[in-house]
Write a protein that binds this DNA or RNA. Structure first.
Lengths: 247, 247
DNA sequence: CGCGCTGTTGAAACTTGTCAAAGTTTGTGG
DNA sequence: CCACAAACTTTGACAAGTTTCAACAGCGCG
């Protein structure tokens, strides 16, 4: 075997566990793609990358090359303005994509930080564009993913613009619950990976307000809270609280 | 000429004013596309549509078929939750796209309403996907447009999550100013197309708060305000106000 | 075992929302 | 073209919700 061939073989070994036999493919990009096309998709993922808790996946200003699919772990993204104010724009879990913000200007516009030890698949964007010119389903699915992100952002805008503190936290918990459920975990009991401060930043609240809302929910029997361990005791109560308040 | 040929000829006449000689192409999708490819693009725009002030371009729940480019006029988009609360998610002006939210679920997730008499180009989405498989630049540009929308939404989230009322209004006015400027209009003097209530909804404030902020800006010599007619007297003042307040 | 970080709780201050009234502009129909 | 109604805006006073500041508790790590 020539050196080149060996390198190629090696590269193949490295990625051969990619999409086609990844147990996440129902959540990630390959959704709904034909088995035959799935093979092509394997070329797509160039590298895996492991991150420790606290590591940056990418930073504001860094050149954009790839989008990332979370294979395991938990991330947050945040943005900043000059004066130092910042805000968490999202929390990403298994199967969700990171980096879509970088496409517009070829530079990342937010930071992505691992909230626990995590692993991601790096998908070189030019490669993804190339492949989606060949595979309609992939193209369409990618467009849907981007659009879903826009719709999600609109939901957050609604939350930030119209809801009060407790409604925001209820909405947040219900959203998390539902995403855990979609991944086969308990929707009623889970561990928060983020601090009160990070929740507050995401919800446009101060950490004290978040803490008070947690206490209130506990008093009202909606939740049991032990530090980051949450158990939802009354889902409907949370839903009612989220919507039915004020006019 | 056969009937068919005549029909084709007629169809061509109807659309021949499309992209290739539209004076907006620097702002709209065709940006950076080769003249040769521009011809293909002309097929893209299936119809123009005129709307009167107050008309809906599309509504929540309506099936998604096309995205729209604003040719002239001014729009708002808004979302609702069950309990009746709603929020304006954006204002769109000439050259900007509408409808990206509909891709994810094949159904529109917000309302798009004309704030003045307007005209849009309808771009059938399946057609756009087809063409962007052929024209790399179009594909890439479209991805950038979607990504830019995500980045914009993050900016709004930052505004809603971290800024106080006057900062929000300052940011809003500076943003409008800059967009008017980009279209060749005066950045210092313009007419608001939306009501105080709509501004408030977008900024997560009550209309009274918006009104008070306007009055305050006027007292401070930053603006002159006569109903919807705004003149910015001190851009730097607005910028300082937007960022430099609180920690 | 103690130090530091994160979270909780309380009281006061501040910002924005709510309610109400009056002024202004726009649109419609006579 | 005027008059009147409807819609929108401004302003004030007060209420409510959230932040700020401060103190303290709990947990985890070295």
């Amino acid at each position: 075997m020539s050196n080149n061939a060996m390198a190629a073989r090696l590269a193949f070994e490295l990625v051969k566990t990619a999409c086609s036999n990844c147990n996440l493919r129902e959540l990630c990009l390959p959704i709904g793609i034909e088995p035959a096309e799935l093979k092509k998709l394997d070329e797509l993922v160039s590298t895996r990358r492991r991150l420790r808790r606290g590591d940056f996946l990418y930073r504001v200003g860094q050149g954009f090359e790839s989008i990332y699919a979370v294979r395991s772990g938990f991330f947050k993204t945040d943005v900043m303005i000059e004066d130092g104010r910042d805000q968490v724009t999202g929390f990403q879990m298994t199967g969700e994509l990171l980096g879509l913000d970088g496409i517009s200007s070829e530079v990342h516009t937010c930071n992505a930080i691992a909230l626990e030890d995590s692993e991601v698949c790096a998908i070189p964007f030019s490669h993804l564009e190339g492949l989606s010119r060949q595979i309609h389903t992939l193209q369409h699915h990618f467009h849907k993913v981007m659009s879903r992100e826009i719709v999600r952002d609109h939901g957050v805008m609604l939350l930030l613009g119209t809801m009060r503190a407790e409604e925001r936290l209820a909405a947040f918990l219900l959203n998390l619950s539902q995403r855990f459920k979609a991944r086969g975990y308990s929707p009623a009991e889970f561990n928060l990976r983020m601090s009160r401060d990070e929740i507050g930043s995401y919800l446009g609240l101060k950490l004290e307000t978040v803490s008070r809302a947690f206490s209130r929910f506990q008093e009202d029997g909606l939740l049991s809270v032990h530090q980051k361990k949450i158990r939802i005791l009354n889902t409907d109560g949370l839903k009612t609280l989220m919507t039915h308040q004020r006019g």
